[in-house]
Design a protein around this nucleic acid. Structure first.
Lengths: 128, 128
DNA sequence: ATAAACCTTACTGTTGGAGTAAGGTCAAGC
DNA sequence: GCTTGACCTTACTCCAACAGTAAGGTTTAT
């Protein structure tokens, strides 16, 4: 199949598929006589795997590792466990930071009931 | 004062101060005879305001608006209120998205108790 | 024949800076 | 007088993960 069909099957833009090839996340696609990229059903599977990882906000470099680990199916999956665990930690850390931010913004938003900028409590608070 | 002292007083890197000038967040600094940037205490205040906004993850373009609104102290602060409210909404939305992500990652992390990649439940789950 | 849909590479832009290069200036110490 | 180190300058590249656009070649349908 051609790139556009792969795109539709995986819900990944053609542009992004080419980009993944560029940065080495996907192998160089084979080409048919007119130079168009030619894909098979295993490419669909690989790309869906990548998309699922991206939905979990795993960065491309880590996805590369996850792909490479699978080339030897008998190797330990400690690396996989660790990577997912780290990703979970990252997400939790970000949530905590954003929660603090939310509190601050909420307090700030409630602080002003004036009409004119010169007496705006929000702006005053931002200056400290 | 020179840029390095402004940097120390505000806890903003010299590099970043020049960048803010470049993108129009700070006015063009006046220069002394040798071409060095020369700052006053009002620059300290402005930069601290910007830094506080950045701590709240307000994007530079919106900070520009917050600065501009203050040039007329009699104007309404509806725009300020709205901007902070939107920022709060953005943060809340992101927190919600990340909370879903956290659940998924947590479930995923618990799913595998195997040793070898070939049977790793995490990887299997990622392929669906 | 031609138009629409698809394919190609290559370059730029996004956000908010950080890193590095290559060079000018200034004060202190020897 | 000379050097050393701290400071200043501009200008360029890099980061993540693409999206947008240009300029052109190919295929398919009408």
């Amino acid at each position: 199949m051609k790139i556009n069909q792969l795109s539709k099957l995986t819900n990944v833009l053609s542009k992004t598929i080419r980009y993944y090839e560029d940065v080495g996340l996907l192998p160089q696609a084979s080409r048919n006589s007119n130079g168009y990229r030619e894909y098979s059903s295993s490419d669909v599977d690989n790309l869906i795997f990548i998309r699922r990882c991206r939905e979990l906000q795993i960065p491309l470099e880590k996805i590369k590792i996850l792909i490479q680990v699978q080339t030897d199916t008998t190797s330990s999956c400690n690396e996989v466990d660790l990577l997912i665990e780290q990703q979970l930690e990252n997400v939790r850390k970000t949530i905590n930071e954003l929660s603090l931010l939310e509190k601050t913004l909420h307090t700030l938003a409630k602080s002003c009931s004036n009409d004119i900028v010169g007496e705006c409590e929000i702006l005053k608070n931002l200056k400290q």
